[in-house]
Amino acid sequence: MKERPILMSAPMVLATLREIDPKLQTRRVVKMNSHHQIEQRDDGTNWPWMYDGDRDADSWMTCPYGQPGDLLWVRETFFAWGRWETRFSAKKGRDEWHFIDMTMESGMAYLYAASGEQPQPMGGKRHLGGVTPKWWKRPAIHMPRVASRITLEVTGVRVERLQDISEADALAEGVRLLGSGQMWTAGGVYDAHFTIPSLSAHSAGCGRASTVPAHGMQTPGSGRSSSNDWSSHEPPAQVTSVCHHDPRRDACQSDRTLATAKAHA
């Protein structure tokens, strides 16, 4: 079992955390090079495949989001308590700003932008008083593992065209139906394409977690067949890989009041 980070926007985070009709799938772009094409495996599912003429060898693409049983910890925009300092970069030949995260050592708890939290005092410009410890809004890409409040277990992976999404999958993505029956999304649920069917929410330090049956395709297997209607010349954005998860859980906190998520049995 491996752990990997995965970025989520605020609407994705809120859709994942909500109790009613939570987000159960996520789609990410399959990044293929000019040598990749979509082929059919022995089990009848489609997957990116590549033939290397120089080595006279072929191979199936490895999913960057793992395989069933692996964990994905969510990175989101957050607030950390700390200060800034400059360090000389020999590579760039100049000083660079570095953030010193003091949240844990100060007995503070990480806070999250998606939850609408606005801690005070807030830092502004790092070069204007940044050396004094304050709350700083930090980009999701810089979130450390200890600050993550959502951990998802991958229970299945499949590859599909983005346009082939079904109504059921759209709802599993976190989209909600309006009263008129039209679908509605809170700006950000549809910014993905790598379909990882089936994730289940885990608790970080809560000791409880549950899984759900895998949906769709699993991890790459052996064998391929060229008898499919996928064009090798289509842009990668047309292909998706899907993640599913079951994030029905309670909000909980650890000793250091780090917010986490846990699934109901």
Rank of each mutant, 00 (worst) to 15 (best):
E96K: 06
V146P: 02
M61I: 04
S89E: 07
N228M: 02
H193K: 12
E85I: 12
E160D: 15
A263R: 14
T16I: 09
Q120E: 13
P197R: 13
E234K: 09
D58M: 10
P235G: 01
T240D: 10
L171Q: 00
R158C: 09
R126N: 09
C206N: 13
P133A: 02
Y190G: 05
V175L: 10
L71G: 05
S9H: 09
D21V: 07
W81D: 07
C206S: 14
Q67R: 14
E173W: 06
P22W: 00
Y110W: 01
G82F: 01
A80R: 00
R208P: 03
A251F: 15
C63P: 05
F88N: 06
H142A: 14
V189K: 03
A209F: 10
T211P: 08
T16M: 10
W60A: 02
M50N: 11
A57Y: 12
A237S: 14
A57W: 12
V175F: 05
S226E: 15
V154T: 06
V131L: 13
M217F: 11
P119D: 04
E153F: 04
M32C: 08
A170W: 04
F99I: 00
P220K: 02
R145F: 11
E19N: 11
R145Y: 12
G156C: 07
N228C: 08
Q182F: 05
Y190D: 08
W136P: 06
D229Y: 10
T185Y: 05
A209D: 08
D42L: 09
K23I: 03
K91E: 15
E234Y: 03
W47S: 02
G69M: 04
R4K: 09
Q37I: 08
L71E: 13
A114C: 07
A263T: 15
P213I: 08
G129Q: 05
